[in-house]
């Protein structure tokens, strides 16, 4: 116990070495502190929550779970979830897959890699979907595709603006070709939403890659990204293997996409609600 106290006190001392070098993660009291994986700074959890899970030291936009995301952009108590329960799809009968999904459902307390529903932003109704990177890397299988398509069709039917926060490693390989087809399904639904003259804002968060990036994520009337998010079609490791060289610093980050003309704007997390609110009223 004494050791623990010493370590805690030590956190607040000016020290030449960074706290992360002194403290092993396991010694950090559960829930009280969190480490920034980018700059290794030790952050007080309460401060972090107040700062929208953005590291005050290096501006790293730490990945957040979809419920926290919803609470950051929607008016309090306005969220109404759609298609909450959809049965696990296992179209190619992949060994152990159903059990794996069930396990992830129980440990993450999420039903799938996306939450969809309806809510208000400063009083304006929106259809909103938020992906979860901690659910099989936010990969898109049949259920994710179904939830997103259902959300888009709901937005079209109710004539609502649509906002989707993407974070995904791409198509879910364990569902074979059925996962690939979700790219076509979601994109086709967006085209119908578009033809009704409705607004779709796509928000790209870290990471948005593969089949999600090559479908609904890149099809926004307005595309916003959080700072420093990895956004690309092919993953950096795949590209490095293909071309046999290291990729330049900053390649496939939000700033790179802005420079190349593929996104409209980079918006910090604490500004997100304000910017979305302006855009949906424009």
């Amino acid at each position: 116990m004494n050791g623990d106290n010493f370590m805690l006190k030590d956190l607040f001392k000016k020290s030449s070495s960074t706290p992360s070098k002194i403290i092993k993660e396991s010694q950090i009291p559960d829930g009280l502190f969190q480490k920034c994986l980018k700059c290794n700074d030790i952050l007080y959890s309460e401060d972090l929550v107040e700062n929208y899970y953005v590291c005050p030291n290096c501006n790293n936009h730490i990945r957040v779970n979809p419920r926290e995301r919803l609470s950051m952009v929607l008016d309090e108590g306005s969220f109404m979830e759609l298609n909450r329960e959809i049965d696990i799809a296992d179209p190619i009968g992949f060994p152990g897959y159903k059990e794996k999904v069930r396990h992830i459902k129980s440990v993450t307390n999420l039903n799938e890699a996306v939450i969809t529903g309806r809510g208000k932003i400063n009083g304006t109704d929106v259809a909103i979907g938020v992906m979860a990177s901690n659910f099989l890397m936010g990969s898109m299988g049949k259920v994710v595709g179904e939830k997103i398509t259902g959300l888009i069709e709901y937005a079209t039917d109710c004539r609502l603006p649509l906002i989707i926060f993407s974070c995904s490693g791409g198509a879910r390989m364990q569902e074979g070709m059925v996962s690939l087809m979700q790219m076509a399904k979601t994109s086709a639904a967006l085209k119908r939403h578009d033809k009704e003259g409705l607004l779709y804002i796509s928000v790209l968060t870290d990471p948005t890659t593969g089949g999600v990036m090559a479908s609904f994520a890149m099809l926004g009337d307005i595309i916003i990204a959080e700072p420093g998010a990895l956004i690309g079609f092919a993953g950096p490791r795949v590209i490095e293997q293909t071309i046999g060289q290291k990729l330049p610093e900053g390649f496939q980050r939000s700033e790179f996409l802005l420079e190349h003309g593929f996104i409209d704007k980079i918006v910090k997390r604490n500004q997100m609600k304000k910017i979305l609110s302006i855009l949906i009223k424009s």
């Binding site: 790219m183 085209k191 090559a214 099809l219 590209i239 190349h260 593929f262």
Partner: peptide, 20 residues
């Protein structure tokens, strides 16, 4: 998959085809 394909929007190009 390569640097220039990413620079010129490989993902956007594929997405646009599905959509249109």
């Amino acid at each position: 998959c390569g640097i220039e394909a990413e620079e010129r929007g490989q993902g956007e190009a594929i997405a646009r085809n599905l959509y249109e």
